[in-house]
Design a protein around this nucleic acid. Structure first.
Length: 760
DNA sequence: TTATGTATATTTTTT
DNA sequence: ATATACATAA
């Protein structure tokens, strides 16, 4: 029997013991909600609930893994059969079992964002419409948010309001693109990330027997990070919980940072409405951070209007004051940060694992890397371009996918002529055309290519590839992931091509391929050692599914003692003794794209709140006066967020620095006041753009590009002198059409173009 | 069909 | 500054 009482405070106990009915845990930062969830599950297991009757949804696979380990420590090995993981991976599992009812086959591919965008690009190209208006990224975002709101292509195309909106925004073909995109994914036996949610919803909606199966299986449902769930996720969960009604959600509205991905804070409010006899428990005691940090965080979040009132407090010591660093440049910021880490480690005898550098954008990691490397400090970067996004990895994965799912359009496109087989673009287009016109599966076309493309060289090359693909398919279905992967890597020619590449880059790529093969081997071994059944699934198919749903945090290994660097988003749920939050500058944090609306700004502030509350012992904030961006220096102003922390919470050094440079802070304050006054003017000037553009965040107008107006004469370093003919603010990034004396008309993006005003 | 050079867009966060 | 896309030549 576990002694719950000893390890938990009163509120936490309540959260553990209130097993029946609906329960909403509002958990402030560092209030031990993971602990509550862990004990809650352990308690359920101890009371005789079977592991497979519990569905626990976490935000990352890593969180699930850690929780599983902690549960096993409490109650033994029963944790293994829990349905615990991310929404996406648990729903993928359900769809693998029962997706056939929707017409999917079990080896379905999971398209990542790149795959989806490529497909959209191809569709737009095939439709022969302007790819400047129908940009893949914009179309993809729109489709994504529609799916997250559970609106199907059919529903979309029958809705007069949507259609007229599109017509007004001058993109009348969007509905068709959405329809075609969905059709093509289905034909390719592929789902994108959003489909994993959307199709699960459809499955439960249209097939009551399957819904019943899961409704009765899951006696208890738990959801972590509830503030970051979207409408689709909520609706599915509501269906699943409808029979047993035992549902416990944990979240903190102050840490909701994924609205851009469809997360809807209203889910918390809906939850109160949908479960009237709900028990609401507020966890407000913070066990993680010092008083200083908790106080700073509270002050920051107070500036947000939308929030559930709560009072986070701590019994911890006041601890060190917050340090604020001003650097002259981003490079200096890096040097100071690295130097500070170096000193602190020696002083406090700390491990590098205790340090984290957090930033708003991935691009900021580079200067930090250089600085750390100079001091020989080990580091790891989470996110950015991950291992699985590297070209050579994606190339080989395409072969794997094709072996598991022969209809995968994206995989076929990628693999068919890589390495070079003399199958060019024209031929590939013919293959797709033949498939579409005769309504014959791609796999069949390529295996009988000469019948469809003629008996020329192209036809035989494709046919040979078809045979190869078929062989891989058999290989994948009859062997475990490692065996199949090794075979495919060798026989696809990918390994050979890279092995022959003697350059340094080629070597690295070759090693990455080896690494991928190691990963399949590890996967197989893990499955066997964790197995609770006779025949664990070690297929390449399952490997691909797990890899596709890996989050950036999941990929980090903590074996080595190293400083962790990541975006604030990736840091959610983590904690470190010493946190360095760099790049505290206007336009960077808050991001220039997020300052136009109150809502967006509040999300940025929550992001700041998340960053600050990662720190246990000490928080260091820094900003640079100048930052190298887009290949040139830009001067920066300190972030407005810095002024939301009480001056007394900064250490003497930081305050002295501010005093010694009265110019800086006060100047900035004046600056901002002036800007705010001015802003209505700029807004009216921008009113030309259509009411509803795809990117509804109007681009930030820097003071420099503001000065560029129609009719003035400017000088460009390359094109020489010219007259501004027209300003176009309708797209993302304000553009100007300029008539140059020597070069004629050019369209330039103002935030990039280096223009000097000659006369206005 | 493939290789090469030039133009163009890109940087917010992610399952 | 860098990655990708497209056009052009071989």
């Amino acid at each position: 029997m576990i002694d719950f009482i000893k390890d938990l405070n009163e509120k936490q106990q309540l959260g553990v013991l209130k097993t029946e009915g609906a329960c909403l845990l509002i958990a402030g930062a560092g209030s031990g909600k993971t602990r509550v969830l862990t004990y809650r599950i352990a308690n359920l297991l101890e009371n005789g609930t079977s592991p497979w009757q519990i569905l626990a949804l976490t935000f990352t696979n890593k969180a699930a893994k850690e929780m599983r380990e902690r549960i096993e420590n409490l109650v033994g090995t029963t944790g293994r059969d829990l349905w615990m993981g991310t929404f996406h991976s648990m729903f993928a599992r359900i769809l693998r079992f029962d997706g056939d009812r929707l017409g999917y086959r079990s080896g379905f591919s999971i398209y990542d964002t790149d795959d989806s965008k490529t497909l959209i690009k191809n569709i737009v190209k095939e439709m022969g419409i302007d790819d400047k208006i129908y940009q893949a990224a914009g179309m993809f975002n729109r489709i994504s948010s529609l799916k997250n709101s559970l609106i199907s292509p059919q529903e979309y195309n029958q809705n007069a309001e949507f259609l007229s909106e599109d017509a007004m925004a001058k993109r009348p073909h969007f509905g068709k693109i959405y329809q075609e995109y969905a059709a093509r994914c289905f034909k390719a036996n592929a789902m994108d990330f959003d489909d994993l949610l959307y199709q699960t919803f459809v499955l439960f909606r249209d097939h009551k027997d399957i819904l019943h199966k899961y409704q009765h299986r899951f006696k208890y449902i738990l959801i972590d990070e509830f503030q970051d769930t979207n409408i689709a996720q909520y609706k599915i969960i509501k269906k699943l919980a409808a029979v047993n009604l035992n549902i416990c959600v944990v979240g903190d509205d102050a840490q909701s940072i994924y609205a851009f991905r469809g997360a809807d804070i209203r889910n918390i409010l809906n939850f109160e409405r949908d479960y009237p006899d709900l028990e609401i428990i507020k966890l407000e005691q913070n066990y993680r951070s010092t008083k200083t940090i908790v106080e700073a965080a509270n002050k920051i979040i107070k500036n947000n209007k939308n929030q559930i009132p709560k009072n986070v407090w701590t019994e911890n010591i006041a601890g060190e004051k917050i340090e604020l660093v001003r650097a002259t440049s981003d490079q200096e910021e890096g040097r100071i940060t690295a130097g500070n880490i170096f000193e602190t480690r020696a002083q406090k005898n700390a491990k590098l694992n205790d340090f984290a550098i957090l930033y708003r954008t991935n691009a900021q990691s580079r200067t930090m890397e250089e600085a750390l490397r100079r001091l020989n400090i080990k580091y790891r970067i989470i996110g950015g371009l991950s291992f699985y996004q590297r070209k050579e990895i994606k190339d080989l994965l395409a072969y794997f996918r094709l072996a598991v799912n022969p209809e995968d359009e994206g995989a076929l496109r990628r693999a068919i002529n890589n390495p070079k087989r003399g199958i060019g673009n024209t031929t590939v287009l013919k293959v797709f055309l033949a498939s579409r016109e005769n309504n014959i599966p791609l796999s069949k076309i390529i295996r009988h290519a000469s019948a469809y493309l003629g008996k020329g060289r192209a036809g035989t090359s494709v046919e040979k590839f078809g045979e190869l693909a078929k062989a891989f398919q058999i290989m994948a279905s009859e062997n475990d992931a490692f065996t199949a992967a090794k075979y495919i890597a060798q026989h696809s020619g990918i390994v050979k091509a890279l092995f022959d590449d003697e350059t340094l880059e080629g070597r690295a790529r070759y090693e990455n391929i080896q690494e991928l093969l190691n990963a399949t081997q590890e996967f197989v071994q893990n499955k066997i050692s964790e197995a609770t059944t006779e025949e664990p699934d070690t297929s390449l198919s399952l490997f691909l599914q797990e890899v596709a749903l890996l989050s950036s945090v999941d990929q980090a290994s903590e074996d080595e003692d190293a400083v962790t660097m990541m975006t604030i988003h990736a840091a959610k749920g983590l904690e470190f003794e010493y946190v360095y939050l760099v790049g505290m500058e206007e336009e960077l944090f808050p991001s220039s794209r997020m300052i136009t609306s109150q809502q967006d700004l509040e999300e940025e502030r929550r992001l700041f709140y998340v960053a600050v509350t990662r720190a246990k012992e000490r928080l260091t904030l820094s900003y640079a006066l100048q930052r190298y961006r887009y290949g040139s220096f830009n001067s920066c102003e300190p972030s407005r967020f810095l002024f939301e922390i009480d001056q007394e919470l900064f250490n003497n050094r930081s305050r002295a620095m501010q005093r010694n440079n009265p110019n800086h802070m006060t100047n900035f304050m004046r600056h901002r006041a002036a800007k705010e006054k001015e802003s209505p003017k700029t807004k009216t000037g921008n009113n030309l753009k259509p009411l509803k553009s795809v990117s509804n965040n109007s681009p930030f107008v820097s003071s420099k590009s503001e000065d560029i107006v129609e009719g003035i004469k400017v000088e460009h370093p390359k094109f020489g002198f010219g007259i501004v003919k027209k300003i176009d603010a309708s797209t993302s990034g304000k553009r100007a059409i300029i008539n140059f004396d020597t070069e004629g008309d050019k369209t330039l993006i103002l935030s990039f173009a280096k223009l000097r005003i000659v006369e206005s």
